[in-house]
């Protein structure tokens, strides 16, 4: 049996993308962006505060960091919970010392379970980014739209109520979306989304409720990916953060302001032996002139003002 004839038809075979969410655009052929104060690089640090329920189903797939053993998996549950109890405070100390304000991607379940953490984030002037409900409530192709709308509303509504912030940024748990996710978050007033990893700068995305923006959020400069997936050492983590920064910093001299996004998980980087490497990496960034530590919403505002 050969493949059906349709298999050799290409209905989207034309210039640009094979969908209409965003335009094809080359990073190096855009109008240069100026950051406030003439900064070359905007530093966007995004720690994730996540909750992996003990009874998680892992459906339709297990989010990275999800529980692996039969119920009750105290081993992985408590190892992840460590980040919200202990690790996050080590990360906060490093960022405070270096004068860095973060944008915290927070499951709304974390905010409900730990109002103390919400206060620790907001009193620092850090931004709360909606990160879904929890790590077993995924958004994915095939999820009923009413169910997904309820998840978006629960996440955004809870985080707005508990943080007192407008909450205009969104990161899907496991960076997973359905075809409806962008429309649903835009309907709730979300202005930027961190799921798409195809650019180093913001770009507009079409939704049923008007345009929103994709915001760089690194899946490469990510503690969990580098240390746990790729099994690189802590020293190699530091090297890669520094190299990423150096590359962007150089590039900004010719192409205009850039964004350096760093993705952190306190249950990973907040382990005692990993805190000094984090400090080393971020110290390298912050000792340069022309670095603007900013939140996602601030970066978006500066970007939009010139768009």
């Amino acid at each position: 049996m050969p493949v059906p004839a349709d298999y050799l038809r290409y209905p989207h075979r034309s210039r640009g993308m094979d969908h209409d969410r965003y335009e094809w655009s080359i990073l190096f052929r855009r109008k240069p962006v100026d950051w406030p104060g003439g900064a070359r690089v905007a530093l966007l640090v995004v720690p994730a505060l996540e909750w992996f329920p003990l009874d998680m189903t892992g459906k339709p797939f297990r989010a990275p960091g999800g529980l692996e053993r039969p119920y009750p998996d105290y081993r992985y549950y408590t190892s992840r919970d460590y980040g919200n109890r202990v690790g996050v405070f080590r990360v906060m100390e490093v960022l405070d010392d270096l004068g860095i304000r973060a944008s915290v991607a927070m499951n709304s379940a974390v905010a409900e379970r730990h109002p103390f953490l919400v206060r620790e984030v907001t009193r620092r002037g850090w931004e709360v980014v909606a990160h879904g409900v929890h790590m077993d409530r995924l958004h994915y192709g095939g999820l009923a739209v009413d169910q997904e709308r309820q998840q978006v509303r629960e996440s955004v509504g809870t985080l707005r109520r508990l943080s007192g912030q407008p909450v205009t940024g969104w990161l899907s748990p496991a960076r997973s979306e359905s075809d409806n996710t962008l429309d649903l978050v835009a309907a709730e007033g979300i202005e930027y989304v961190c799921d798409w990893v195809n650019d180093d700068m913001p770009y507009p995305i079409r939704t049923a409720h008007g345009p929103i923006y994709a915001m760089p959020h690194s899946h490469e400069i990510d503690d969990r990916v580098i240390l746990l997936d790729l099994h690189h050492t802590e020293a190699e983590f530091v090297e890669q953060v520094c190299d990423q920064f150096d590359g962007l910093y150089r590039e900004a001299g010719r192409h205009g302001g850039r964004i350096m996004a760093i993705t952190l998980h306190p249950w990973v980087i907040g382990q005692p032996y990993r805190v000094r490497p984090l400090r080393e990496a971020l110290s390298h960034v912050m000792r340069h002139a022309g670095v603007w530590s900013a939140t996602g919403a601030e970066i978006l505002a500066a970007f939009r003002a010139q768009a």
Binding site: L54, D55, Y74, T78, R85, F89, H114, F116
Partner: peptide, 15 residues
Amino acid sequence: MKSDPGLYDYWPYVD
């Protein structure tokens, strides 16, 4: 099945 082990309260590593 429980979603939280119920074995300890939240107790941040500060103060």
